[in-house]
Design a protein around this nucleic acid. Structure first.
Lengths: 336, 336
DNA sequence: TTGTACGCGTTATCAA
DNA sequence: TTGATAACGCGTACAA
């Protein structure tokens, strides 16, 4: 009564289970009338094939795992949107997991996926430089991985990133050209590859303009808002930079808050530019200059690549790095 | 070689499959040494029990489906965070689905979940007032549902909402007290219950202060940014309200953009207040007055309720409505 | 404490 | 076009 299944239907309809199965899988080997009869009966009895049984049979879950450091974040939520868009078109579903930038969580979830729970993984990594063996296990099980934005260089997989070096260089140069001589670089975790790349653009731009690089101007922040507020308060009152290049949106906001409280004028006393996917950057006080990554497009691209791998199974297929372009928006906060 | 499973391990180790199974399920009926031997072997050979087989056996997926209108949105992404938080503690995973406010997508996904793909569902509905039969089917299959924020009144299920009526009343009253006489109410879809409730608070506040309700001041907007821009441009130039009460964050942003372009002074000429979960509302130009829903807490609450139902199976359990309180933040945009 | 044997619900293969 | 049957990989009575 409660649990209808293919067998019970078979009995009721005096039809074999195979035929019923065929009715649900678009098989051509079935009489139109039989099929309709079956589907009608199914509708009436609220029956749908059980996914776990199907998955167990053909070892496909039609599910994609998406692993991100945070969800409540303009960049990642837009990227997830892009991924979802593609997945839906393919009839796939999204298993979402947040790591909070904690390496252990990443490892535990990836391990959990190591057994058929998802057909593939799209991830932006927590960034720990340690042992990435847990990821290598996946390829043993033919679970393809695509990285986006934050990647592990030592893992061979498709990667979707943006031209971070160029953007950082351009942003830093822009600050210099508007008159900044003492530009602080704000970063959350220097060791993450993305933090390093962005910093290199900053360093090289300084060099090009003969401004000596000062390690004290590299401000290593945390994920805790209050801690960041304190760090930045100290920096702005003691080191007194005249420009801020923030590698992470959140730190630009923190800078704004500190400036509001300390009465520091942006862009008069301090010019600010930041990596950010915030849609309403123009509405800030003052409008925030941004390097905006094509988050949605990155999601689309990552998902597309994953499906290519999923579908090209068997063929030798060289993993690639795909670099999309960020856009520089000069606004009031940097004197634009 | 490739595919290790319980049987192969059994052969290799000269142990029965049941014992191996026991090693993975915290069964007390197993010798410590045997267990360790098994787990060691499993680690070495990168084995984990297959989820689909397990799920098929005990008809539990340890997965929660989360259905929301949009993901890239401050309210929903924070709510998802809350849900994820609870789910993780319970060892559950999140299947995420976005409806884009399109009723058909909601129906199709819910139907898809109707066969064991998820143990329970947490959703914020698209709001169509039509036939909600697809949801009733779920209870037949013992898949509990919890609504949050946007609910269907006619479905019996746990519901987590906020005190929207009171908040709307308070916000409107606040605008009146700062001198507004011609307050426009911005809404995306009047027919959604949440839009109606919020509007009622607005209407009643007007009435209390003897301001006649004017239907022309109820501005029905869309989900398309450009369309909204045009609608609001027209409203602000032709109807010229002196206050805006926006039931949706997005429309407040649109108002800001229009005001920027038309040179309308906020709060001088126009006062603005909006429902919004934007963390950086204080950083806007001018700082945006908001009614802020406890999005994260709502997620927590919704997930907690779902697990209660999941665990209390069998017991009669009255569905309840849980109302959390929003907070009113008066800032510059409304003359604060 | 361990092993045997069956079934979870589906689908692919083969035969009719 | 349809049906019988054997897997898919696991967990759980039940027996030992």
């Amino acid at each position: 009564m409660d649990n209808i299944n293919i067998k019970k239907m078979a009995k009721e309809l005096n039809i074999s289970t195979s035929t019923i199965s065929r009715a649900f899988n678009g098989s051509p080997d079935i009489n139109k009338d039989t099929k309709e009869k079956i589907l009608a009966f199914a509708r009436e009895h609220n029956f749908l094939p059980n996914h776990y049984a199907s998955n167990l049979r053909d070892k496909k879950s039609h599910t994609l795992a998406v692993i991100v450091p945070e969800i409540a974040n303009d960049f990642f939520s837009q990227a997830i949107n892009g991924i979802e868009e593609v997945a839906r078109k393919k009839g796939f579903y999204i298993l979402l997991y947040r790591t909070d930038d904690i390496f252990e969580k990443e490892v535990s979830f990836v391990n959990y996926l190591n057994n058929g729970k998802a057909d593939g993984i799209i991830m932006s990594v927590s960034g720990e430089a340690s042992d990435h063996n847990y990821l290598k296990k996946l390829s043993q099980k033919n679970v393809p991985v695509v990285f986006f934005d934050r990647v592990y260089e030592d893992i061979e997989a498709a990667k979707v990133t943006t031209n971070d070096y160029d953007s950082s260089f351009a942003a830093t140069e822009h600050l210099i050209e508007t008159g900044c001589q003492k530009i602080a670089y704000l970063v959350v975790n220097k060791s993450i590859s993305i933090g390093k790349v962005r910093m290199q653009g900053y360093i090289d731009a300084l060099q090009k303009h003969h401004i000596p690089f000062d390690d004290n101007l590299v401000i290593d922040c945390s994920n805790d808002e209050k801690v960041n507020y304190n760090i930045l308060s100290k920096v702005l009152t003691e080191i007194k930079p005249d420009g801020i290049f923030s590698s992470v949106e959140r730190l630009a906001f923190a800078t704004y808050y500190v400036c509001n409280d300390l009465g520091i004028d942006i862009p008069g006393t301090l010019k600010v530019i930041s990596f950010s996917s915030l849609g309403i950057a123009p509405l800030l006080c003052p409008a925030l200059s941004t390097i905006t990554q094509p988050a949605y497009e990155m999601g689309i691209k990552a998902a597309t690549l994953l499906f290519e791998e999923l579908e090209k199974k068997g063929q030798v297929h060289h993993k690639k790095e795909h670099v999309l372009k960020s856009k520089l928006y000069i606004r009031k906060s940097s004197g634009g």
